[in-house]
Design a protein around this nucleic acid. Sequence first.
RNA 1: GGCCCGGUGGCGGAAUUGGUAGACGCGUCAGACUUAAAAUCUGAUGAUGGCAACAUUGUGUGGGUUCGAGUCCCACCCGGGCCACCA
Length: 824
Amino acid sequence: MAQNYNVTKIEEKWLDSWEKQQLFQGVTQADVVKADAVKTGKDPLYLLFAFAYPSGSGLHVGHVESKTALDILARYYRMNNRDVFFPVGWDAFGLPAENYAIKTGVPPAETTRAAIDTFRRQIKRIGISYDWKAELATSHPGYYRWTQWLFLELHRQGLAYQGEGVVNWCPSCQTVLANEQVVDGACERCGSEVTQKSMKQWYFKITEYKDELISGLDEVDWPTATKEQQLNWIGRRVGAQVQFSVESAPDAERLACFTTRVDTIFGVTFLAMSPEKWQSSGLMEQVSAQKRDEIEKYLKAAGKKTEEQRKIGEKDKTGIDTGLTAINPVNGQVVPIYVADYILAGYGTGVVMGVPGHDERDHSFARKHQLPIIEVITPAAGAKKNDKSVFTEHGVLQNSGNYTGLSSEEAIGQLLSDFNADIEKTTTYKLRDWLISRQRYWGAPIPIVYDPDGNPHPVKDEHLPWLLPTDVDFKPTGESPLRSSQEFIQRTEKLYGKGWRPEFDTMDTFVDSSWYFLRYLDARNEQVFAQPELLKYWLPVDFYMIGPEHIVLHLLYSRFFAKFLRDQGYLEINEPFSKMRHQGMILGPDGKKMSKSKGNVINPDDVIEKFGADTLRVYEMFMGPIESDKPWDVSAVAGVYRFLNRIYDLVVQVAEGKAVTNPAVKRKLHQTIRKVSSDIPALKFNTAIAAMMECLNDWETSMRADKTGITREEARYFTQILAPFAPFLAEELHELLGGKHSVHTTEWPTWDDSIAAEQSVEIPVQINGKVRGKIKLPAEQASDQAVVIQAARADERIAAWLAEAKIIKEIYVPRKILNIVVKI
RNA sequence: GGCCCGGUGGCGGAAUUGGUAGACGCGUCAGACUUAAAAUCUGAUGAUGGCAACAUUGUGUGGGUUCGAGUCCCACCCGGGCCACCA
């Protein structure tokens, strides 16, 4: 009877053998690649997995899922004669290692190295066919030397600049955060409340590419949701800027308001300025002395508010009347000017025309401050009214002078042309420049030095890599840890002169992780970040698998770098990632997100120990569609293990000889090859596995019945289509069946449609859309409608249904269904 | 509040994109083997009624289009994710 095959022994045997053969390695050597490309004429394929942060807890089942999925593609395409590049690396800089260092004093370099070693061992153990020769880690000087080079390139082009500004400050991490890293007013990483602080920081001018970052999305095959989120983040809005002059100070600069709804301009009953805008406007001078105190008080209170409190303010819109008034350029209406903290400083102009009739925020502000509310838009005829008190959609203008009766769209166009001195078409964006300075240790040092007068200068090329010092105190002080390094300061003075100081901040780790896919192509090159020939040969990335958590930032930044490098002549592509998909999350057996505190974590090592890596891989691929979230099912894993054991059992029987082809099983095999061959490129791994299971079931049944099934050669096809999924078992079985070389270097089997074709067809027969019977016909007769109808009428059950009825219509969809429409 | 996914047996999920709903796997039940258990094998398994053939019903809800709807259209309900005082 079937005995479990010795998983551990087999898997370890092949691990060893593959390692010795250096299977799948070495493709990144420039000369090899060029020679290969010319000689073989192979079609290059770049498969990319979003590299991981090597956390101390090691590989989890989620990693296994996405890595296996890509590995299946890599193996499949190699067998289909594509030149596959499938690299691996580590997003090794980052906070967890530094926080650990703060706690224990163990340098991040050490913990990171240990973590990488663990990951590497685990990844090899599950048989991922990475090209290890291209392995990289962002914390390695050989890598961050080029991160620094990239910074300097941007600097040279004026796209890396220093700016003083109010920044998000995380008091717990003791660092500045990018806007993108602030979630609901809290630090994305540690959850502490973020405060505001004014500092001098380095920025990358990503806004330079804002329009191209939008239009480029048309070129790529990405999930629409991802594109939407990118668009949402860039936040392009077309609207108008309306100039309001200040009535009480005719000489003062006019106030520009951004609005997407100029059509509501007759409904303006006040102007509102953000506190920040007010402070920089100089309007305070125009205000009476007693008002001034009140306003100062308000500004102070607003400045103290945290993001969280501002949110609560959604319901309670505070603000203060400045006593100043402005003139509506369209109708000359005089309206009061308020300072209100619900106005965002960073969006539009920081001044808003208040239209309480048609904007919910303005509405609640107006009610609180007893300002008039004018209705100037009504729903268009036929349009549905929603029951909200404030009508915020487009409609038809009312109480709007000459414009009354126009639609919103018409009015916007008219106003823009009638008032071109005061109303100007404008586009605004939410996207801000990227703040990259971090007051942290474990990151790439910003390659800038300051002269004794405090002016920044780029670190000279010959001084790269601008090494991260090691003699630092990790304890957070609110200042950059690099300040505590004697070596760092001495180095700077030695190389640049007395009184020179290095930049003490390091770069946001997103900088490291947003160009690694370029470095993979030539990871050991010390002259350039990658040779042009290699970049040209491999780019763009053909398929990128990435977790949904990196949708916005990582992709935006990577695209920005690619476009920048293209403009500098290094790349020829517009978009770095042609096709992208996201893997779903593997949930615990309880259907909840895995977490240590819930105790529902599945450890891949345990599964490997019990069932082997093949079972782990096949199970994870069988769970369901790759992009959806799915819970772990402990007993279903055993089902996959049974499946693999049954394959082993059958193949051993075949290898022992005496196997004869059973035409039905052979047909099934060809159908299965066809199905698996189309499912893999479509990422439908679960149905590919189901098809192999079906094939095995037929094969097994036939073997049991009369010792027939498929021959040794045909069984080898089966091991070949199994190989991407279960590389260890497939290799073992292939050898058992007398395969000369590794199954992974064989050519993908082809199927024969004529063998795969079914000989007889079963056609369901419906009466009025309900299946009442089935008829079986030889395949060649099934396309003849007359024959099919005749056969259907001859069928006993159908005849009974037709006896009392009058046939109205017969619809035959060849080989699929016959529907007889009758009247009873 | 906006946008994006999704809702199919006891469970994970299939369904040639408008053509037999429930492939495949898990679980459950019954049986074989066993002193027994595990493992393995065989069969059954959406629900309701029936000894059975079979009938009715069934893909979140209510309508619609169609010879035919899980699939398309309209309205709604529920769950998940992302964004959100963005004017």
